[in-house]
Computed example of a mutant assay.
Amino acid sequence: MQFLRRRVALEWYGLVHVGHLHDLTRVPSPYDPLHLPLSSSTVPKGGVIDVPCYEAQSFNGKTALLHATGALIPFDFATLTERDFDLVTGERGDEWTIQGVIAVDADWLVGVMEVTTSAPVPKTLGAEIDEVWYYITPMNTVPTVVAGQYVVLGLYR
């Protein structure tokens, strides 16, 4: 399994040939700053990027444990309104700033958002990716379905 994750991650970025995988000691994450530097000062106002798709392995009512599916979907930053852009590039509560983007299944997201917002005290929706916790929220204030079934989320820390 570890070998397959390395292979998929590296093939996404065209970093090495499959024959060289045995030399690697860690799996690069799509959110590793060496591969996808995304911060409040580097979010583009336009342009299309391929966003990795993730799915939940588990959800405890507040945090989803997510893993990459290997699929990529295109996201056009031009779909962000001026308000969306201001929210994405600004500081969120507790001084959290954007670290990266992922795509998740729209139906799954609706379900978990209902769980987190229906509690007597609404909970912050989070995701754990590669043992790192992020606050997650749709990039568009009016969530837009991309590629027929995905919503693109910002990852904040």
Rank of each mutant, 00 (worst) to 15 (best):
A56S: 15
G47F: 00
F77V: 00
V18T: 14
A68T: 07
T79N: 04
P44L: 03
D105P: 06
Y31W: 15
I49Y: 06
D107Y: 01
A56E: 10
V48A: 02
E82Q: 12
P138V: 02
L38H: 02
F77L: 01
T124R: 02
V27S: 11
L10A: 05
H67F: 10
K62H: 07
Y13H: 14
T141N: 15
E91I: 05
V112C: 08
C53T: 13
M1N: 12
G70R: 08
H22D: 15
D76I: 03
V104K: 06
T81Q: 05
G154Y: 03
T69S: 09
L10E: 09
G61T: 03
D107S: 11
D50L: 14
L87I: 12
A68C: 11
F75C: 06
Y13P: 01
R92M: 01
G154A: 08
D23M: 15
G90L: 04
K62Y: 01
A9Y: 01
W133V: 15
R6P: 01
P143F: 08
S39W: 08
G61F: 01
Q2C: 08
Q57Y: 02
K62W: 04
P28N: 06
L125H: 03
R83F: 03
Y156I: 00
T81F: 01
E91C: 13
T63Y: 00
I49W: 11
V145T: 13
A78Q: 00
I73R: 09
D50G: 11
R5K: 15
S58D: 11
R92K: 07
A9Q: 10
V8A: 13
S41L: 09
S29N: 13
T144R: 15
G126C: 15
D105G: 11
L153V: 09
Y31R: 14
T42G: 12
M1D: 11
L36C: 15
G93L: 12
P74K: 07
L72N: 04
Q99I: 03
Y54A: 14
F3C: 10
N60T: 09
V145N: 07
K45M: 00
F75Y: 14
G70W: 05
H22I: 12
A106V: 08
V43D: 04
W133I: 12
M113E: 11
N140H: 09
V16H: 13
Y135W: 13
P143S: 08
T124H: 02
Q99A: 13
L153W: 07
A127W: 04
D32F: 05
I136V: 14
L155G: 01
K123F: 02
T79V: 07
P122Q: 11
L87F: 10
E131S: 14
R83G: 01
S41A: 12
L80M: 14
G14Q: 08
M1H: 13
R5G: 05
W12Q: 08
T116Q: 03
P37L: 14
D84E: 08
L80F: 04
G90D: 10
W96E: 00
V151N: 02
E95F: 02
